[in-house]
Write a protein that binds this DNA or RNA. Structure first.
Lengths: 136, 136
DNA sequence: GTTTACTCTATTAAGTTGATGGGGTAATTA
DNA sequence: TAATTACCCCATCAACTTAATAGAGTAAAC
């Protein structure tokens, strides 16, 4: 299940990418237009800023804005920040690898074998889609 | 994140499919060999039986056994029983469709657009893998 | 120097997961 | 037919995560 955090984050990014000019947009405006709890959105935008996707401007006329071109923003990067690992089990994760605590041997694990294929399929989608591809 | 329920279920199915003969295997044996809490495994095997993947035999010499050939058991079906919907949002689910409560219009939703591609990629994997493909 | 809007910390209700215990029941076997 | 075996079901519970909310603080613009 996709978390609301990711859902809201993607919607906010799309909202910003759809602006005619890349001027700061207030949190309140995004929250209202996309039906998002403003406070929750605040924390999401903050983490997107810290991750280098967004810039922010304080004071009157302030808000958030995209720092890169939409077509330069890969879904792999966005998903990893918002949703976490793309892999469904840590033992097949590229960026968050961990040995499964209950599994003695990955080499002969059926779950590992299947989830490796799932991971590759998902990566393929996320690598070939940018924020620009999400705009309708 | 893949739930332990699914993980354990897949491991149990693989264990059964790896048997030389398709005779009943006791829960305790599977649990011990696969490092699974026996009680938890009980409930998982029960739901797999109710879904038509497994048969069970009571009394001495009883246990669980596969009802179909491993290559006839599609991962799409197994995943839907164990993990639930394959789609990450209900609005792109084939078998569990629901309108997203917070989204006024799927047709212009960026999340919908992306998750549709993700769903198709995952379906492609699950449809083209059977239990037989998981055996090492 | 006041306003605006971002930034941070903390709290909390609700839901889910994974594990466990205990009792009951059906089917084998002797 | 009685005892045994192993499935079957119900209830509980701690731990964790998610999503939402509140409130105080801070930096920048006018």
């Amino acid at each position: 299940m996709l978390s609301k955090k990711t859902k809201y984050g993607l919607k906010a990014l799309t909202y910003l990418a759809s602006q005619k000019e890349n001027t700061p947009v207030q949190i309140a405006e995004i929250a209202e237009n996309e039906n998002i709890s403003q406070k929750f959105l605040e924390s999401i935008l903050l983490s997107l800023r810290k991750s280098g996707f967004l810039g922010s401007k304080k004071g009157k006329g302030g808000g958030y804005y995209l720092i890169k071109e939409p077509k330069e923003i890969l879904m792999t990067d966005v998903m990893r920040i918002l949703e976490g690992p793309i892999a469904m089990v840590p033992c097949v994760s590229l960026n968050f690898y961990e040995k499964c605590d209950d599994c003695p041997n990955e080499a002969v694990c059926s779950v590992n074998k299947l989830m490796l294929k799932v991971r590759d399929a998902n990566l393929d989608v996320y690598r070939n889609n940018t924020l620009a591809d999400l705009i309708i």
